[in-house]
């Protein structure tokens, strides 16, 4: 009784299962499998992209490091050069100042020398004038006592020299 399939049941089952298989195949499994496959592909691509990006980032980081290193090195170089320049400028300035000072000193010496000479000339002139005056005085005074004359001259000269 159970081992004999009923024809009506067979027909109904065939129809029902056939329709279900058709509907599910067309409207359920097809879009679902498509969605699953697409997602899997998307995940695959994304993973690949991610690893690629990571590699890129790694390279970028290395590059960045390189640039930083270079920049740091350049900065050092610049600082060093700046210091050098500064030292040089200072040294030059010192040099210049020294020569200037020397020149001024020399000029001053020369001026002093000149003024001294001028003074000497002036002095000589005055001595001469004074001598003449004194001589005039001596002469005009009584030329009686030679000894006294000499003393007087001497005394006058001393006075002059003191002046």
């Amino acid at each position: 009784m159970f081992l004999l399939p009923h024809l009506g049941t067979i027909i109904w089952t065939t129809i029902i299962f056939g329709v279900v298989a058709f509907i599910l195949g067309k409207y359920a499994w097809k879009p679902l499998l498509k969605a699953i496959n697409e997602r899997e592909r998307y995940i695959d691509i994304s993973l690949k992209k991610a690893s690629h990006t990571q590699l890129l980032l790694k390279n970028l980081k290395a590059e960045q490091e390189e640039i930083l290193k270079k920049a740091r090195f350049e900065k050092g170089e610049m600082l060093k050069e700046g210091a050098l320049q500064r030292d040089k400028i200072i040294a030059e300035a010192k040099d210049k100042a020294r020569t200037e000072a020397e020149r001024i000193l020399i000029d001053a010496h020369k001026k002093v020398q000149k003024e001294r000479e001028a003074a000497l000339v002036e002095m000589r002139k005055q001595i001469t004038t004074l001598s003449v005056e004194i001589a005039t005085k001596v002469v005009s005074a009584d030329m009686e006592d030679k000894k006294r004359h000499e003393e007087m001259v001497k005394k006058l000269i001393d006075e002059v020299e003191l002046n």
């Binding site: 009923h6 089952t13 029902i16 299962f17 279900v20 599910l24 499994w29 679902l32």
Partner: peptide
């Protein structure tokens, strides 16, 4: 005999569940 027996009702319920869930 093409009757909708209890087994066929079971089949229809099965199909209905399957179709509803999967769609």
């Amino acid at each position: 005999d093409l009757s909708l027996t209890r087994t066929i009702v079971g089949l229809l319920i099965t199909s209905l569940i399957l179709i509803l869930v999967t769609l």
